Amino acid sequence: MRDKIIIVDDDDDHCKLLVQYLSKHGFEVIGCSYSGQDTIGLFHSHVPDLIILDLLTPRLEGLELCTEIRKVSDIPILFVSTYADDYVKISAFNLGGDDYISKPLNLDVLLARIKAQIRRNKRAFPVNQRHLLQYPGLEVDLSTHTVLSYGKEAILSTKEFQLLVLLAKNPNRVFHTETLYDLIWRDSKLGDVRTVMVHIYNLRQKIEEQPHNPRYIHTVRGAGYKFNGAVSLTAIESHS
């Protein structure tokens, strides 16, 4: 399986050059995005192994996009930019960037940096941890977009799957309803925050053994929702 990369750069010629070069060297470029907002949609629809991120991305600056991605993922983020200012580089690293390369790029150096970052991330997060989210009674396969609940496949919509992945990858973290809406529906902006509540309800119906008494997705009154990372196998078996 080829490693997957998202490129975020508003320079069309530069994007085409990178796609051609990286494809030649065995990578799958799953998206060449011209805006941060488009990238959020791509990110939630795929499981990239690395993101190449230009600092000057329109409508959502690179540093802001890096912050948004770091809320939900530890995948390597490699910044590229014409900026040579040390303050900008420090800001990029402080916000979660893993590497920084100045433009104009030396493509061979870029390739070596990409391989090093992906190799380091794979050592830190083995395959079963990167592509499978496993909790007692629940398994989410990020590569095939399948969910097993109590041994049975749960058929989820795209947004339900994205919502589940976001919560399950951040156990015990409380997400405000507005934050969930912004992260999952940013690319479409359809409906309003009530959309989140409807999807949470539907998700519970599909993955919870007792939707009225959920074990996985908890409501935090006055705040939002969280995934219960402390769910125990004993507790589940006692209700089976």
Rank of each mutant, 00 (worst) to 15 (best):
M1C: 09
D3K: 13
V8E: 02
D10N: 13
D11F: 02
D11N: 15
D13L: 15
C15G: 04
L18G: 00
L18I: 02
H25C: 01
G26H: 03
E28P: 01
E28A: 12
I30Q: 03
C32D: 08
Y34M: 12
D38H: 07
D38P: 00
T39R: 10
T39A: 09
H44V: 05
H46G: 00
V47H: 12
I52L: 15
L55A: 02
T57E: 00
P58W: 03
R59N: 10
L60P: 11
G62N: 03
T67G: 04
T67N: 13
I69G: 08
D74S: 15
I75S: 09
I75R: 03
I77E: 04
I77Y: 03
F79W: 10
V80P: 04
A84E: 15
K89Q: 11
S91W: 02
L95G: 08
Y100W: 01
S102K: 10
K103D: 02
N106M: 00
N106C: 04
D108R: 10
L110S: 06
A112E: 13
A112H: 10
I114G: 00
A116N: 14
R119E: 10
N121V: 01
R123Y: 13
V127A: 15
N128K: 15
R130Q: 11
L132C: 12
L133I: 15
Q134W: 00
E139L: 11
E139Q: 08
D141H: 14
T144R: 14
H145G: 03
V147Q: 06
K152D: 08
L156F: 13
Q162V: 02
L163C: 06
L164F: 11
A168I: 05
K169P: 03
P171F: 02
N172R: 03
N172A: 08
R173K: 15
V174S: 10
F175Q: 03
H176S: 07
L180E: 01
Y181A: 05
I184S: 04
I184W: 06
I184D: 02
K189C: 05
K189M: 09
V193M: 03
V196P: 08
V198L: 06
I200H: 07
N202C: 06
N202R: 13
E209Y: 08
P211W: 04
H212T: 11
Y216Q: 05
I217A: 10
H218S: 05
V220G: 13
R221V: 10
A223R: 15
G229Y: 09
G229Q: 07
S232R: 11
S232N: 10
S232A: 12
L233G: 14
T234Y: 00
I236R: 14
